[in-house]
């Protein structure tokens, strides 16, 4: 068994209300050096056997067609996860 990781982030120009709420919270736990927070999504796709180029291509297809909405999000990373 192996896993492929897909990371999706809101496009930089799209306001991220959840990220803003988190950024506002950080000073309350004593951390005031972070000027902004953007929240994204991480998907882990599990497969039988080893990661191949073909499976990576299928993961990219999943990322483009289902895991992200190209109107508001970017797929920022698709990679094999080393266990």
């Amino acid at each position: 068994m192996a896993r492929i990781v897909v990371d999706v982030m809101l496009k930089p120009e799209i306001l991220d209300p959840q990220g803003k709420a988190i950024a506002n919270e950080l000073p309350r736990i004593g951390l005031s050096n972070f000027t902004d927070v953007r929240q994204g999504k991480r998907f882990e796709l599990t497969i039988e056997g080893a990661v191949t180029e073909e499976l990576l291509a299928q993961a990219r297809q999943a990322a483009e067609e289902l895991l992200s909405n190209p109107v508001i999000e970017d797929v920022v990373n698709v990679e094999a996860l080393e266990d």
């Binding site: 809101l10 799209i14 306001l15 209300p17 803003k20 709420a21 909405n69 109107v71 508001i72």
Partner: peptide
């Protein structure tokens, strides 16, 4: 309907959260 692309654009969280 926006997710099917019958209509353009998308909806995100309300700006006031």
């Amino acid at each position: 309907l926006t997710e099917t692309h019958l209509l353009p654009g998308s909806m995100i969280k309300n700006d006031h959260r």
